[in-house]
């Protein structure tokens, strides 16, 4: 579980391993402070996400131009991605640009809202929303390209 989280936020496998090590050290350092109020897994997730974010240079967020213009919604057939396996989805997500990937992971998988994401990353809420939209659009484009390939078509058949 922890490695999967690390993998989602890391650029590559080596970085994911570094994040995992850092997460485990944080866990051991702060384990006496775990108050048994929530689930231990949830606590591990929080620490792992935090450790992953510490590995990301957040400075570029501050200078990010806000994407004011909303991108048009693109209709996509569910069959273009529901046939992908988890590893493929993971590859798709990790191939996103880092700023979009982080916001996408935080919002979609780790279930933070935009206010929390903006606090964690030091960006505005509108920036968080636009990054999410960008990430979604990019993923949709990736899936569209992938679905047009023979491999997926064969797999769908």
């Amino acid at each position: 579980m922890m490695m999967s989280i690390c993998r989602r936020y890391a650029r590559d496998q080596a970085m994911a391993k570094d994040i995992l090590q850092e997460s485990l050290i944080l866990v051991f350092r702060h384990i006496s402070k775990f108050e048994h109020k929530g689930s231990f897994e949830g606590w591990l997730r929080k620490i792992t996400v935090r450790a992953a974010l510490q590995w990301v240079d957040k400075k570029w967020y501050k200078n990010e131009q806000h994407l004011v213009g909303m991108l048009p919604e693109q209709s996509i057939d569910r069959s273009t991605y529901i046939h992908s396996d988890a590893n493929h989805i993971m590859d798709m997500v990790t191939s996103l640009p880092e700023k979009y990937k982080i916001v996408f992971n935080l919002f979609v998988v780790d279930e933070y809202n935009h206010k929390e994401i903006s606090d964690m990353l030091g960006i505005k809420e509108t920036t968080s929303r636009s990054h999410l939209l960008r990430a979604r659009k990019m993923l949709q484009e990736k899936y569209t390209k992938f679905s047009s390939s023979d491999h997926i078509k064969k797999k769908a058949n």
Partner: peptide, 26 residues
């Protein structure tokens, strides 16, 4: 050290795709 999110409200994670997304509380 960790984010101010109470994960107890959103765990366990199994079957989350069937339920609406809860908002984590800071």
């Amino acid at each position: 050290a960790v984010t101010a999110i109470d994960y107890s409200t959103i765990l366990p994670v199994e079957g989350m795709d069937e339920t609406p997304l809860p908002t984590a509380e800071i």
